[in-house]
Amino acid sequence: MITTYLFYFLSFLAIMFGLMVVLSKNPIHSVLYLVLTFFAIAGHYVLLNAQFLAAVHIIVYAGAIMVLFLFVIMLLNLNKETEPHKSLWLKASAAVASGSLLIVFVGALKNATNIPATNVANPNVGLIENLGKVLFSDFLLPFEVASILLLGAMVGAVMLGKKSIK
């Protein structure tokens, strides 16, 4: 099956680029690797026949959010001299905490079996017509609540951005 090979290939890319995000010394490189990670994940969405989600993922994450990240990092001009140095104690505790989380994840997924696809009957569920219908009928309330959340975040950003409140 070609989709299986593609799945492994994309997973390999996603994990490799994800590691590169963490391991690169230069923050600009990290952001660019994160963009590549998003591309690999968008490939996964396409494999799941969720083309709309893949396109929106690229537009929103790679096209907008990561551009803003890049923007801020370029303006901050981070380099070796300005890099904040954490104490050894902090580094050790971070390593222990994230290591424990890794153990928890491995333990939780150790006995995981193949989860059968819930909606096999309709393979086109990820296409935009079906997605739109579901979003505006079954999941209307969460959809609207999410939009209010975004509106609230936007108003908050505008308030914070104001120089002086009269």
Partner: peptide, 25 residues
């Protein structure tokens, strides 16, 4: 003929900024 043709177009356009940003930086 993608059934999300407009979104594809929009996605590629939104990626176009990377060339200029990376080059400039």
């Amino acid at each position: 003929d993608l059934n999300i043709g407009i979104l594809y177009l929009f996605g590629v356009v939104s990626l176009g900024v990377y060339g200029i940003m990376i080059g400039g930086w």
